[in-house]
Design a protein around this nucleic acid. Structure first.
Lengths: 220, 220
DNA sequence: CATCGCCTCCTACGTGAGTAGGAGCGGCGA
DNA sequence: TCGCCGCTCCTACTCACGTAGGAGGCGATG
């Protein structure tokens, strides 16, 4: 019998998994947790074979919860759940000791297969995730994770700051006295270097990395 | 003779204005300043007829510099320069006592005309700015400035938070178990209510308004 | 001198985002 | 009961964004 702990802050998601898993004769959901701390505590209490672990959770995120659970019990198998297929999570999660990585919207059979696979002691990545990992390794042979702002040139950083203020390409072009296409070129380079999908993620990164503290808008 | 002080942190812009203005027989650039404090100081020293004032400047922003210059000399005329035609600036600037408001990429003749107009004691807004002001007053008869997050419904706020994390419409749809088109509908409403152009500005607003402090990314 | 990195600009293309306008549904207050 | 509001979904359309791939100039470095 595979004993499962479901840790996710959305009750909807927990209910969905309970529903899905309870239909299986060899699987049993022994507990649920709505945050990271609770997950650690219930893992210790119920000793599940597999923990379905969301990354984004209050109190303690899924990665840290993973580390703590494994520190207490090396036999536990953690299967990371996420909606986001952003690359860093994969590496972070695997470094934390997770056995697998699946997307919440993978098809049900695939999710069930994933649970059984990691329960059996094997590791597994969802196909969508695997694809990204392969892409990444073929694109960037073996260098360290980028995401460093200092990889950007002066000009790129300048463009980056304007993006982060919410300006459009046309506005940036006017501001810097360069053409629209040049702006696009810079942005393409910025996104590649920082491993971001689009300018929206660039804005998020800029603000999260504290690039704008003490530089708030002039008209408050 | 119209005596002009050019205050802008970009030397490129200052040079451009000096070039433009020096070609006019009735206009003379008497000084330049690259930050707000210098602008205040040089305005006191040179007593210019008109100050071309950028809003975004180090040390002291253009709005506060405007207040201080006018506090010292009620006859000074301040013409605000900006690349951004975001509404609040207009009101802030006019409240600060500015005589006009022009965009840096308005055509040269228009900029010259603006300098002469405010020198003559009249007020003036660049056409592009005027357009926005009128739109604003016709669309929202007399109510208080929007830009209030509490105008958003529960669901809209939920979508707003996900936008602010950098998610695409498809990802938001999956996350909330609704369709792509519904997400678009919510976003259209959000942008209207908050007077924003696109999701990029929404991200900026979200982070600037401190909505995300203490809620940083899970994988740090 | 040659190469390399940076900045600039270009075309062409696919697609995600946002608008416009309409529709149906359930709840809730008048 | 009627209407309003919030939430959902739809089509059709436009356009900004980002990618791909190429090109030239310029300054520094080897």
């Amino acid at each position: 019998m595979i004993r499962v702990l479901v840790a996710d802050d959305q009750s909807m998601v927990r209910a969905g998994f309970r529903m899905l898993l309870s239909g299986e004769p060899d699987i049993e959901v022994v507990a649920e947790a709505s945050n990271g701390l609770a997950a650690v505590e219930k893992a210790a209490r119920f000793g599940p074979t597999v923990v379905l672990m969301d990354i984004r959770m209050p109190d303690l995120d899924g990665l840290e919860a993973t580390r703590r659970i494994l520190a207490a019990d090396r036999t536990a198998r953690i299967l990371i759940l996420t909606t986001f297929d952003l690359d860093e999570y994969v590496y972070e999660a695997l470094r934390a000791g997770a056995s697998g990585f699946v997307l919440k919207d993978d098809p049900p059979e695939q999710l069930l297969a994933a649970v059984r696979t990691v329960a059996g002691g094997d590791a597994l990545l969802s196909p969508a995730v695997t694809k990204r990992v392969i892409e990444r390794f073929t694109r960037i042979p073996r260098r360290a994770p980028p995401r460093a702002l200092d990889e950007l040139t002066e000009r790129e950083l300048e463009v980056f700051r304007l993006i982060a203020r919410g300006l459009s390409n046309a506005e940036i072009a006017r501001q810097l006295y360069i053409s629209d296409t040049t702006v696009k070129t810079h942005i393409t380079h910025i996104l590649q270097k920082l491993q971001l999908r689009d300018r929206v993620q660039a804005v998020v990164l800029a603000h999260e990395s504290g690039l704008f503290d003490g530089d708030r808008r002039p008209a408050g």
